[in-house]
Design a protein around this nucleic acid. Structure first.
Lengths: 339, 339
DNA sequence: TCTTATTGTGCAACCGCTTGCCCTGCGTTT
DNA sequence: AAACGCAGGGCAAGCGGTTGCACAATAAGA
């Protein structure tokens, strides 16, 4: 049987409460007693039961991270681990642990929330979602539980969220293409379900308009975000006769797929057609040509999310915060004509 | 205040124990009572407190995953998230949640273990480690706590572990080079600290010996595993005058670094020199030329680890299991001479 | 020398849920 | 009609801590 506070108390000839106070470093305990108890704790290799403590304290020092859908799908893309990394880094600095939960066949959205939030396991929740309206959000609002959403979510209520400034950086990226002399620029991988891509679309459009270029709907292609169907999307554009000189993909993986096709079609990058992506995958730097991309700083996104969450946990009055984490354009060879 | 089992009991005119039994679906409760109670639970939006339940049950349905060093370092490489994905996938199927902890400045190895294991938070622990001798292992053995190590670890005691068959696949990969006519094959990124690389080294040597090729120590270059210093390692080899016709890197990132340098030196891949890596990064398929690599199935590794862990948790007698997850050679253009 | 603080501990209730055991009431058996 | 079995629930003691309050002993003040 595991050694408890009572065992220590007996051995030390003090009451359990004294032991508890020793552990808590309560100043009311004399150093004599304290040392005696500490010594015995070491001897017996004791460590307080965190569950019991949590129950008594109503504080677990755990935050929940809920991943959309099954985790095996979500983590397919490096973006999510990277966010998690940011969350974990910040959480661990604050001695919080993080509990990962995801929606599966055996546990649906509601159950996950129930367990973590109402079940008292987590003190707060970070929701990784990219959906326009996540039912979990409504639930969390209803029970008034601290949470922050990663990815601007289109809900009516005031909530905490963090996101990149997708609009601005898409604007900037599009401007970059325009400055390179491009007039027909395709945008692939937009999805109505995924807020970030919509923001990017807006930035793209604004940039074109500001430069008096027309918006050609034939150059804007929808596509699922996470599948590497850049190949197919690109094929569609070309086969329909459109001849863009530049392509912006909503994700680097999409961009690589597109490049694969373009190469097959005998087009040289960037001379015949320039290509850029988003999310700045680690290897975008290594590809040939290296890929212009947008560093979204997923790590920073995660870290910021935790910071907002902890603020929310510790404040009673309801203040809601948003944080825009800047994204940075990384220009590489795939959009730079050779001199 | 959160609604408890007592509130429900009062409202339903039954005892708390009855409510508890309703929740547990205990057959002793009549369906009449059961329905009445369930109805009230819904009405009051009740969900049992998992912490209290865990305390009473001595079961948390949580497993801990301990990441070596600070999580922000470890997760730099896609290998770890991929393992985590495997763990989480399997865990969630079994309605286990996973708690991520990592060793930081504020919480050292021992504290992390204490909290998770002795603190009763986790029922078992998965240790991601690649070090030869991890002090955490000794600690876990000492307190007789269920755990499994990912990555064959060189400890004397019997423990649970999972790993890839690095030896065999390295053998196979080296043979592949040899079959392509290579006689001078470099191996870069070997590190004494990292067991997997040592296993790979063994497989590499064996393959050479079996083909009566000599082992040239000048072609075996040590290097930190996770840094993208493939560039530098490769440079070292060439600058020292060695002229391999093939290069095996212990990681794809290293391979990309090497390729970068080789390209700068005007060498064509694979015609002048063939290159292969390990870990089969998602983008190894997209690079030009596409990179021959080894799919280590990190996902499977994680999943298997969980399976062993759950077995260990549920069995009282001490049986220790090892699992070798097969790794698969993925041959691509970087090692195939053009026909 | 007799209060009055001050310091150091112990008591016991509580956090919210589980579970072994006991009790009641009713239908069966003989 | 007495004895018995069984279904359905309640009691209360945990699980392993925390903490407000009471209290004893010692130090300080009058």
């Amino acid at each position: 049987m595991r050694v408890t506070i009572n065992d220590i108390a007996k051995k030390a000839n003090v009451s359990p409460s004294t032991v508890s106070r020793v552990i808590a470093n309560n100043p009311r305990i004399s150093s004599t007693t304290s040392e005696k108890v500490l010594k015995i704790m070491k001897e017996m290799n004791y460590h307080p039961n965190m569950i019991a403590r949590s129950l008594a304290n109503r504080s677990t020092k755990i935050i929940g991270v809920i991943v959309p859908g099954a985790i095996e799908k979500a983590f397919q893309h490096p973006f999510f681990p990277e966010i998690l990394r940011g969350i974990a880094s910040e959480a661990h600095k604050n001695t919080y642990n993080i509990l990962i939960s995801s929606v599966t066949e055996v546990k649906d959205e509601k159950q996950v929330i129930n367990e973590l939030a109402k079940g008292g396991i987590a003190e707060g929740i970070i929701l990784m979602t990219s959906r326009m309206k996540d039912p979990s959000i409504a639930e969390l609002i209803k029970i008034n539980f601290p949470f922050v959403v990663i990815g601007r979510s289109m809900v009516d209520s005031e909530i905490n969220w963090v996101d990149n400034d997708n609009f601005s950086v898409a604007y900037e990226l599009t401007k970059h293409f325009i400055n390179q002399g491009h007039k027909k620029i395709a945008l692939i991988g937009v999805s109505k379900q995924v807020v970030v891509t919509l923001d990017r679309l807006e930035g793209y459009k604004k940039a074109l308009l500001d430069s008096n270029l027309e918006i050609d709907e034939g150059l804007i292609v929808e596509g699922k975000f996470f599948d590497d169907i850049g190949y197919g999307l690109m094929k569609k554009i070309l086969d329909e006769g459109a001849r863009p000189t530049g392509v912006i993909a909503c994700d680097d993986v999409l961009a690589f797929g597109a490049i694969k096709l373009l190469t097959e079609y005998g087009l040289k990058i960037p001379d015949d057609i320039a290509v850029a992506g988003f999310n700045n995958l680690p290897l975008s730097d290594y590809s040939t040509p290296s890929l212009t991309s947008v560093e979204v700083n997923a790590f920073g996104l995660g870290a910021k999310a935790f910071q907002l969450l902890i603020k929310s946990i510790n404040s009673n009055y309801e203040v809601f915060n948003k944080a825009i984490v800047p994204a940075q354009l990384v220009i590489r060879n795939s959009t730079l004509k050779q001199v």
